[in-house]
Amino acid sequence: MIDITSLLEEIKKAPYKELTVFTPHSGRIEFALKEAGTTVHGASGVWNEKPGTLLAYLTREGNRKPVYAPEKGELVMFHDIDDHQFVQAGTPLLKIRHFLTKQEVIDIILKKALHLFLAPEKGRYYFVSAIDTKLKAKGLGHVNIRQGDEVLIISRMKRETVLVYDGPGGIIYTTYFNSSDSVEVGSPLLGVCPNNQVEEIKEVVARIQSGWEEKQ
């Protein structure tokens, strides 16, 4: 078990993450925001239907496309690019400092505290039906798995293989994949909490829930 308190202290020292916004493709850039320090927000609405703050327009082949802020935060720095300049694909434009929300802090801590079961290869993953039905009925945090259990199915190039869980037994505390998206090699699939640590983890989560102040 890791030292949650010191980890939390460490996060509190820099309670944000910095995101760099890159150009998705080449084109002529026009900045909509020019001042560092501006507050921006990400997509919102019940269905995420309202886009985030407009950062810039990228015009390619007569098509002027908006570039939106991916998340809430503060615009901290602009890369050295002239307005109306042609930029190549993948050029860094600006940096956004995003202050961590409670859920994000919990996720960081859980990723350190839980046993992470990683994707052995690139592909789509989904649960074997036995575990799937249990998860649907009981929900996350209530389904036990042991070493050697068949837990996931990898679907890759229309080939399906059953994946056996190897790691300490425990409950499936959280999942990191979406069965409709492809998962990269080495990305976490499941966060498993050993049975004897469930209470501790719950306590940590409760502590963050009550103690973490979200910065606007």
Partner: peptide, 18 residues
């Protein structure tokens, strides 16, 4: 020039013009 994909003709034309 770096482009997002070899398969995207728009990238090629944008680079050609630029």
């Amino acid at each position: 020039y770096r482009i997002s994909s070899y398969q995207d003709p728009n990238e090629l034309f944008a680079v050609a013009d630029a």
